[in-house]
Amino acid sequence: MLTEHDLARQADPLRPLPARLVASEALASDHRLFQFRFVDQELNRDWSHRPGQFVMLSVLGTGEAPISISSSPTRGGVIELCVRKAGRVTGALYRLKENAIVGLRGPYGNGFPIDQMKGHDVVIIAGGLGMAPLRSLLWHMLDNREDFGHLALLYGTRAPEDMLFKQEVTGLVERTDIDTYLTVDKVPEGQEWSHDVGVVTKLFPHVKSRIDPDNAYAAVCGPPVMYKFVLRELLDMGFGKDRILMSLERRMKCGIGKCSHCGVGYKYTCIHGPIFTYWDAMNLPEMV
């Protein structure tokens, strides 16, 4: 039975709830994957999210940071966050040992429009750390494979060692129910790389004939410079502007549409995003 205290906690979307760091592993030179479980077992069992949503992470005394969820809701029980060491909160997170307690609240944001995407082809285009929010969508679709048409993953990074979830995505290359193409800008001397070399747009020719743009969605996330080229390719292929989904980042403070830190025009990234269609973004000043 819920105590009065439990009810009060549920009623307060700003109150972080204690979660335990159960494991972490290095993904790339400056990225780690952290796995969390809520201390409250019941909450841990009931908690779910949509691909593309984010949580607010508190590390003792350093404040809060918005982090996109990398795990798929189809693989619950643990919340995976792929974090780059970038500031006070993430710096403190990197110093934590297993079993340390952090605060989590969420999930927030709109997430990908999964229901609309069902029955369509989907191409995921990731650049660098853009894979972090897209991985949730990737595994959600693979675990519900019959809900979607043709699937493709195009992922590019600077070098092989920058590739997030490298084992996982190279493992997908062999799968026949998704076309996976990987590329790096440059292969350092002495390293082995059996995939493409060049920017991510170089991968488009591999999948062009297999995706029906009239019946497809594209999910894009990557560094700002990538969008310009990727968007041009997608539009050339014939993708509708409202079928191109982008995961955008802003500095959310509250996550619940109050503090206005993530406001762009008359939209809040934390409420109306972080997933925006290209059409939305075009009409919002300075969105991309």
Partner: peptide, 14 residues
Amino acid sequence: YCYDVFDHLNLDGA
């Protein structure tokens, strides 16, 4: 209604 959020750590560090 814009606001910012700050965490103040006590001297005990905990």
